[in-house]
């Protein structure tokens, strides 16, 4: 039994990925939404736990300069522009570690800027 609040959250998720919501149940499960905040020269969190076998969206923000967020093993990337929310859609992933890194040169700590998705 879903509460009204869970229902709204779910609806929001569906709208996010552009499926729309017309009051009826959609077949596709809404992706889970996760957040990562970037600044020179770290991501918070550096290890993000995400649920396996379920599509996800990572919402990325940055407080100082243009950054990148790249998952080379999945061939996925996005820019993160200050003042905007970047949304990266992830397919359902099996359990494991997926490393990410900043692929837009951002300064003296750029080479150390990375982390991983902990898919469980």
């Amino acid at each position: 039994m879903l509460t009204r609040r869970q229902l709204l959250t779910r609806a929001a998720g569906l709208v996010l990925i552009g499926y729309g919501f017309n009051g009826a149940w959609a077949e596709t499960p809404a992706p889970k939404v996760y957040r990562i905040a970037a600044r020179r020269f770290t991501y918070t969190p550096e290890t993000l736990e995400i649920a396996a076998n379920q599509p996800a969206i990572i919402e990325l923000t940055v407080t100082d300069v243009l950054m990148g967020f790249a998952l080379p093993s999945l061939h996925l990337r996005t820019d993160i522009i200050p003042g905007q929310i970047a949304r990266l859609k992830l397919p359902a992933l099996p359990a494991g570690e997926v490393p990410f890194l900043c692929d837009v040169f951002c300064g003296s700590g750029h080479e150390q800027m990375g982390g991983s998705l902990h898919v469980v």
């Binding site: 243009l66 990148g68 820019d79 692929d103 837009v104 040169f105 951002c106």
Partner: peptide, 11 residues
């Protein structure tokens, strides 16, 4: 030929 693949921070 010298090619520049660094001036754009996206490599």
């Amino acid at each position: 030929i010298a090619l520049d693949n660094v001036s754009d921070p996206h490599a």
